[in-house]
């Protein structure tokens, strides 16, 4: 078994916690995980990309080979379209619906939506609304993990435990909000 995930968004959206949650859950299930990201200049409001690979066998490349990825998990809808070449035919795209408009050439909603809907397997999640409902506007990323959880080769309980472990240093309220966002996202 192997499962390759492209995580993407805009610098500052905090996607690293998502990688860590999924990787920790994989480790707890005895899987290998390998993750790769880029820091520095790109994080200043630019395109950010992270590759996360899970497998029951040792993983070689830190980067996902073109045309073989299983999932694009996007924190922003325009960015969801940027790394499609990594995806295997028919593989899924799950994206937040909330645009991050920090460039003048940002496409109009309509065009963006139709490009997303033209993909073979795309789900658009209102992660911001879920985060608000969960009581923490920063829980949107974990709402997306919830939405992705039915695709991931990981049990719900190991993801829940990974969320608890990842957010424990930030206190019980943050853990609770993220767990709620996960559950709501899973239903979305």
């Amino acid at each position: 078994m192997k499962y390759d995930i492209v995580l993407c968004g805009v610098g500052g959206q905090g996607g690293i916690s998502v990688s860590i949650v999924i990787a920790q859950a994989a480790l707890a299930e005895g899987l290998a995980a390998k993750q790769s990201e880029v820091h520095g200049m790109a994080q200043r409001g630019g395109e950010v990309l992270s590759h996360l690979r899970l497998s029951d066998r040792p993983i070689a490349s830190p980067l996902i080979p073109e045309g073989t990825g299983h999932l694009v998990l996007a924190f922003e809808p325009l960015e969801a379209l940027r790394y499609l070449s990594s995806l295997a035919p028919g593989a899924a795209v799950i994206t937040s619906s909330a645009p991050f408009r920090n460039i003048a050439s940002y496409p109009p909603d309509e065009g963006l939506l139709s490009a997303l809907l033209g993909l073979p397997n795309c789900r658009i999640v209102d992660a911001e609304a879920i985060a608000r409902e969960a009581g923490n506007p920063r829980a949107g990323n974990i709402a997306l993990v919830g939405a992705a959880s039915r695709h991931l080769p990981l049990s719900e309980s190991s993801l829940v435990q990974a969320i608890e472990r990842c957010f424990a240093p930030k206190g019980g309220a943050v853990v609770e909000a993220n767990l709620k966002a996960f559950v709501l996202g899973r239903k979305a």
Binding site: Q43, L63, L81, S85, P89, P107, G118, L119
Partner: peptide, 30 residues
Amino acid sequence: TPDNVRPALGLGARAGQSAGAFELPRRPPQ
């Protein structure tokens, strides 16, 4: 990358999905 070493190893390129004609603007850091 795992892809740009393939031609040298005698292996072909693999194609993924695409957004078709949709024009994707770059998002430089700022």
